[in-house]
Amino acid sequence: MSAHSKDHYFVPDASAYPFLCSIALFCIAMGGASYLNGYTFAPTLMSAGFLGMAVLLFIWFRKVIIESPDYNMDVDKSFRMGMSWFIFSEVMFFAAFFGALYYIRTLAIPWLADTELLWPGFEATWPSTGPLGAELLAGVHPDASSIAEGTKFALVDPWHLPLYNTLLLLASSVTLTIGHHTLRASKRRQTVFWLALTVVLGAFFLFLQVEEYIEAYTQLGLTLGTGVYGSTFFLLTGFHGFHVTLGAFILLVVLIRYMKGHFTAEKHFAFEGGAWYWHFVDTVWVGLFIFVYIL
């Protein structure tokens, strides 16, 4: 019996989505853990979870969209705050990996190099495979002789694909901002254009990123298992790429919703939330470009 009118804070009625989403999450998590341990039922469980989650989130968000005319500005503000704190949590997630990179590079590798007794001849350089990283890549094998030639990896050249990627993402942030301005000015056609362009730039970024991974694996000998540089490189860029995917998807949804006329010049939280997220992803990339590729 909560008051669904604009002078009251919107308190939704009972809802089954959270409970169902938890079940889906359970399937994903349990499926994932089982998958890693070779259970045959795992892929099914996991797919069911992902599918369920996708469907549920779709319905859930749809419901929110339908309700949204009943939301007053306070609810809007709650959403904004919620989104910014969520982004803060994402920042901290990336901070863990950047921290690891920093620690390994400036502390661990030099310490290992100092440990002459255990790792004779290992020298502190960056990027590093670690004392036995190359062997790790070859798969640890008693007959170490089988280690393939050329397993010492090469770096991704920052001034090639990564540079393009940087430019792409920076450009996409600009186009998105233009889109926001045009939205506020109610210039429909332009908004659609700039928003669509942003999504395309994002997609192009992802395409290049995949290209880069393929190159790393097939030509540079740079893989997840190439010692610690490979680890940090792929986890940082990988999680970033995942976030770009998510961000691009959000913007795509926003675009579709915009075309359906869901937003007004004043009230368009979804657009802003998506935009913040995009700028955050962009900023992380700049960090990556500097700390992972260039330095």
């Binding site: 997630f93 901070a95 790790l136 010692g227 610690v228 986890l235």
Partner: peptide, 26 residues
């Protein structure tokens, strides 16, 4: 914390070397 256990997971299953000195980790 999520980051820490994620690194554990990839060290366990995907051959990363965050915590493996042989690969330069600690």
């Amino acid at each position: 914390f999520a980051g820490a256990v994620t690194m554990l997971l990839t060290d366990r299953h995907f051959g990363t070397a965050f915590f493996n000195p042989a690969g330069g980790g600690d």
